[in-house]
Measured scan of single mutants.
Amino acid sequence: LNLKQAKEEAIKELVDAGIAEKYIKLIANAKTVEGVWTLKDEILTFTV
């Protein structure tokens, strides 16, 4: 999975969960695949 694909998957998951745009922007700015997954997990843990 490359960075672009990771971001697309994570953003789709966050949108489906009804997460606010400000958190989705954090994913869009992530620099690594690991960073994308870590941010996604943290956002889902603390906002859902």
Rank of each mutant, 00 (worst) to 15 (best):
F46V: 10
G18F: 04
A30P: 02
V48R: 13
A17S: 06
L1H: 11
K25T: 08
K22M: 11
K31V: 11
A30L: 07
L3I: 07
A20L: 08
I24M: 06
I11A: 04
K12N: 06
A28N: 12
T38G: 09
I43A: 06
E34T: 07
T47V: 15
L44M: 07
E42P: 00
L1Q: 09
G35V: 11
V15Q: 14
L3F: 03
L26G: 04
T45L: 13
T47N: 12
L3N: 01
V33W: 03
I43N: 00
K22R: 10
K7Q: 10
T47L: 15
K12L: 06
K31Y: 06
A30Q: 08
L39G: 02
L44C: 05
A10L: 05
K12V: 04
K4N: 09
Q5C: 07
A17Q: 07
A30N: 01
I24A: 05
G18T: 02
L1V: 11
A6F: 04
L14H: 01
A6I: 06
K25V: 12
E34W: 06
L3H: 01
A30K: 03
W37N: 14
K40P: 00
E8T: 09
I19H: 03
A17W: 08
I11S: 04
I19T: 05
K4A: 13
T38D: 08
K22C: 14
K25I: 13
I43Q: 00
E34D: 09
E8K: 09
K4P: 05
T32Q: 02
K31T: 13
V48C: 14
A10R: 01
L14S: 00
I27S: 00
F46D: 08
G18S: 04
G35Y: 10
V15Y: 11
L26W: 09
A30E: 06
Q5Y: 07
L3S: 01
L44F: 07
I27Y: 00
E13A: 13
K40R: 13
L1T: 09
Q5N: 08
K31F: 06
W37E: 10
G18L: 04
E8P: 01
A10W: 02
A10E: 00
K12H: 05
A20G: 11
I24L: 10
K40Y: 14
K31A: 10
A28L: 14
N2P: 10
A17F: 08
L1M: 13
D41E: 13
A30V: 06
L44G: 02
E8D: 09
N2I: 11
K25R: 11
E42C: 15
L1Y: 09
K22Q: 10
W37D: 10
L39Q: 04
A20H: 09
T32W: 03
E34K: 08
V36Q: 01
Q5V: 07
D16V: 10
A10Y: 01
K40Q: 05
W37K: 15
E9K: 14
V33Q: 03
I43V: 05
L14A: 03
I19K: 03
I27F: 04
T45E: 13
I24W: 14
I27H: 00
K25M: 13
I11R: 05
E8I: 11
N2V: 10
A10D: 00
V36E: 01
K25Q: 12
T38C: 15
A30G: 03
T38P: 02
L14N: 00
A6S: 05
L26T: 04
I11Y: 05
D41H: 11
K25E: 10
K4Q: 14
A28K: 10
T45G: 14
T38M: 14
F46P: 06
D41N: 14
T47I: 14
A10H: 00
Y23M: 05
N29D: 12
T45Y: 12
K12M: 06
N2A: 14
V36Y: 01
W37G: 07
E42D: 08
L39Y: 04
L39P: 00
E13R: 05
E9M: 14
F46R: 14
K40T: 07
Q5M: 12
A28V: 10
V15M: 14
V48F: 09
E21F: 08
L44D: 02
T32S: 08
Q5T: 08
T47W: 15
T38N: 12
K25Y: 09
I27A: 01
L14I: 03
E8A: 13
V33Y: 03
E13L: 12
L14K: 00
I19N: 01
E8F: 07
L1R: 10
L39E: 01
A17H: 09
K31I: 09
K7H: 03
T38V: 13
I11M: 09
D16W: 08
K31E: 11
I24T: 06
K7G: 01
T47G: 15
A10V: 07
E13G: 05
D41V: 11
T38L: 15
V36N: 01
V15D: 04
F46I: 13
K40H: 08
K25P: 03
T47Q: 12
F46Y: 12
K31S: 13
A30M: 10
T38W: 15
I24V: 07
V36P: 01
L14Q: 00
Y23P: 00
V48Q: 14
E21I: 09
T47D: 08
L14V: 02
K12G: 04
A28Q: 14
